[in-house]
């Protein structure tokens, strides 16, 4: 479904140039949920922005369903980390969700209905006439997820989607993603710095290392569905996987407890 081939990106030119991506290869199969995990500032967001067509990578190729894309792909949705800046504060929640649907055709009533359905799916049926800033952070991120759902993308990108919410909300939102993804057989690429989250959510985890970002490892997560916040996380397989991902994220640095 998605193929990223030898993707490189360098910010700036000359001596101050900073290479963020150093030749990344990855692929996501149809209906798969792949988590990309790596330390903060390792270029994860650059990777996502390249796939979304928000920046032009300096080298490499991105293919969706075997078609090379250079601009923003037509049926791609993104859930950004910063929900408060991603939702438009001058529109109601319902209008926020319905706004991108014009492209999908259908009249106003049909778009409204589609938005209402998506909001119901994320448990916010009653919030359509509210404004985003009247909702809590977790609810705002649900709206952003509903907007992506209503858009019916063939590929959903999520950029640290739960990085700005509290732990309880985070677990709820993780389960929401698993639920809607199951329901719509969506293809998802989720970027996170949270090792546990990547294992809990993913069918596969891809680990990046820092500056420039390159793939250092890839793990298949063969944990049973449906996943459960308590039961899944206490499985020996889960514990083992997170240790392995953790080791890959840390790199080969030896354990040095007395150094800052």
């Amino acid at each position: 479904m998605l193929d990223v081939v030898n993707l490189s990106h360098t910010y700036g030119k000359g001596p101050s140039a900073h290479q963020a991506l150093g030749g990344i290869d990855l692929n996501v199969a149809e209906g798969e949920l792949v988590c990309v995990v790596g330390p903060s500032g390792c270029g994860k967001s650059t990777l996502l922005r390249s796939i979304a067509g928000l920046i032009k990578p300096t080298a490499g190729q991105i293919r969706i369903r075997d078609v090379a894309v250079s601009d923003t792909p037509g049926d791609l949705a993104v859930v950004f980390q910063d929900y408060s800046r991603s939702l438009f504060p001058w529109m109601t929640v319902g209008d926020n969700v319905a706004l991108p649907l014009r492209r999908r055709g259908g009249d106003r009533a049909a778009r409204r209905a589609a938005a209402a359905d998506a909001l119901e799916e994320v448990g916010l049926a009653a919030a359509a006439t509210k404004y985003p800033w009247e909702l809590s952070g977790g609810m705002q991120q649900r709206v952003a997820i509903a907007r992506a759902l209503a858009y019916r993308p063939s590929l959903l990108l999520m950029d640290e989607p739960f990085g700005s919410v509290d732990a309880q909300t985070r677990e709820d939102l993780e389960d929401l993603v698993l639920k809607v993804r199951e329901l719509h057989r969506m293809t998802v690429l989720l970027i996170t710095h949270d090792i546990d989250e990547s294992v809990y959510l993913g069918d596969r985890v891809i680990v990046l290392k820092k500056s420039p970002a390159t793939v250092v490892g890839e793990l298949s997560v063969k944990l049973p569905f449906p996943r459960d916040q308590i039961a899944t996380r206490e499985l020996p397989a889960f514990v083992h996987l997170r240790a392995e991902v953790g080791r890959l994220v840390r790199g080969k640095d030896p354990f040095r407890p007395f150094q800052a």
Partner: peptide, 8 residues
């Protein structure tokens, strides 16, 4: 970015 991604 949101406007661009959703192809407004």
């Amino acid at each position: 970015d949101t406007a661009q991604v959703f192809g407004l």
